[in-house]
Structures are given as structure tokens and as C-alpha cells.
């Protein structure tokens, strides 16, 4: 059976063959890697990034001590730029995939602080700050070979990605793989390769920050399926698979998108 690394090489090769003229690292820019018209507008927006205040707000939240005097840095790796690239990671203790969002809330609960809502401003502010601190660091997602539960989680996420669902009967791979670069109405489809590198994202459509899981949720709803909860085990496993596919890509979040 092919393991995660064989999967990744095949995933990368698929998109390189599909878009031979696009330098590999560019896929981290989503649809702007492919669509040169949209790219110009996007570069203009990135000159005055709409997520700048969010990064500042995240830094403040990150540094604010908890009631017990400790801070987030007590829960996370040092130096700070090493944090983002290591998530999602498989946690042997719980036997589950832990995303950055979940790790932040785990840290809060360990310090007797109330949890952040996964659709709230605080959590995307902190992840935006951490992504910003890690810009240029390479994604380093690991599926430990000595723990079969990690491979199971990866395989479950992979299966999710390729399974057709909803009334419209689409798999993630139907749109972001075999149809990438094509149009659904006026929307051009980005490649699944590079998807997890740049989150959270400021969306001009909603005028706010969205997490990767909120994006998952939107796409699942669009195929008229019932979305899973943000940070559900299903979405965490999906993120584990998808992030592994982008291993070696540089963190380039936060980013702006339509």
C-alpha cells in the first residue's frame, strides 16, 4: 500500500503535469497562481493587506497573560516561528489529530480559561498572528510511522477528500483536482495543492477572516451536503491529509481572497 509520502509525490506530480508552466511554490497562492487577471487585482490588495489589524489583535491576545499568569508560550514550541508549520499534528495522548486551533483551546482549558468559539474573531486573530510569525517556514507535517492510529487518521482524511458527497455528488478532488483551473460559472477552481499554507484568510466577500475549516464547511455546503462541525474529527483528519500533501511548502498566511 502506498504511504503518505508516495501519495504526496503523486499529488504534486499531478498538478505539475496539469500546469507545467507554473513554478511549484506558486500553488500556495491558490487561484492566483493560475489566473493572471485575478492575480493583478490580488497583488494590489496585498500591498495594503486587509488582515493587518487582525495580526496585531492576534499578537495582543497571544501576549496577554492568563488569569494564572501563564501565557500561550507555556503550551507551545519555541521559537514561535516553529509553531504553525507543525500543525496539524498527531497527538499520541488523545490518539487524535490536533490542529492549531484545537491546540490553542487545549492550552486555554489547561489554564482554566474559557474556550474560544471556532467561528469567532479571537481564534483567527491568533492563528493569523502565528502564521505571520512563521512566514517562510516550511510545512512539516508528520505521520508517525510507529503509531498506526496516525496513519488511520491520515487515511480517513484522504478518503474524505476523494469521496463524492451531497446532492450534487462532488468530491473535493472533483473540483480542486481534476477540474482545477476550470470554471464553475464565474469561479475558477484552485488546486488542492497549497490550500492549507495560507490560512486564515481575509475574504472580501464576507469582509472578515475565515479559517480553513470554515472554508471546508462552505464547500461541503455548496455541494448540498450537511457540513461537519468546525474542528470536528472529520475536518481535522481532512486537514491532516491536505496539509501533508503540501509538506515542504512555505507558510504564507494570512492571505486575502475573494
Amino acid at each position: 500500500m502506498a504511504g503518505p509520502e508516495e501519495d504526496r509525490l503523486a499529488f504534486v506530480a499531478f498538478f505539475q503535469a496539469r500546469f507545467p508552466e507554473i513554478p511549484l511554490a506558486e500553488f500556495a497562492n491558490g487561484i492566483y497562481a493560475i489566473d493572471s487577471d485575478a492575480r493583478d487585482q490580488w497583488l494590489d490588495i496585498e500591498d495594503f493587506p486587509p488582515y493587518e489589524f487582525t495580526i496585531d489583535a492576534g499578537e495582543t491576545l497571544w501576549q496577554d497573560p492568563f488569569a494564572n499568569g501563564k501565557t500561550y508560550s507555556n503550551c507551545f514550541a519555541d521559537p514561535i516561528e516553529d509553531i504553525r508549520p507543525q500543525y496539524p499534528r498527531f497527538d499520541a495522548g488523545s490518539g487524535e489529530v490536533v490542529t492549531l486551533e484545537l491546540a490553542i483551546n487545549n492550552c486555554r482549558s489547561a489554564n482554566d480559561e474559557p474556550l474560544f468559539a471556532y467561528d469567532g474573531k479571537e481564534i483567527t486573530a491568533i492563528t493569523a498572528f502565528l502564521a505571520y510569525e512563521s512566514r517562510g517556514q516550511k510545512l512539516d507535517i508528520r505521520v508517525p510511522a510507529d503509531d498506526s492510529r496516525a496513519l488511520d487518521a491520515y487515511e480517513t482524511g484522504k478518503q474524505f477528500y476523494y469521496t463524492k458527497r451531497g446532492q450534487l455528488n462532488f468530491a473535493c478532488s472533483d473540483c480542486h483536482g481534476i477540474s482545477s483551473g476550470q470554471y464553475v460559472r464565474a469561479d475558477r477552481l484552485s488546486t488542492g495543492l497549497g490550500h492549507p499554507t495560507h490560512f486564515p484568510v481575509y475574504r472580501s466577500k464576507t469582509g472578515g477572516m475565515v479559517s480553513l475549516h470554515q472554508r471546508f464547511s462552505g464547500c461541503v455546503r455548496d455541494v448540498r451536503a450537511v457540513p461537519f462541525e468546525l474542528q470536528s474529527i472529520e475536518f481535522r483528519n481532512l486537514e491532516y491529509f491536505l496539509a501533508y500533501m503540501s509538506n515542504g511548502f512555505e507558510v504564507n498566511g494570512p492571505a486575502s481572497r475573494k
Partner: peptide, 8 residues
């Protein structure tokens, strides 16, 4: 002449 057709 439908506007903004997709290409799938």
C-alpha cells in the same frame, strides 16, 4: 448566449 458559463 448564457452569461458566465462554466467549463467543466
Amino acid at each position: 448566449d448564457g452569461q458566465l458559463p462554466g467549463s467543466l
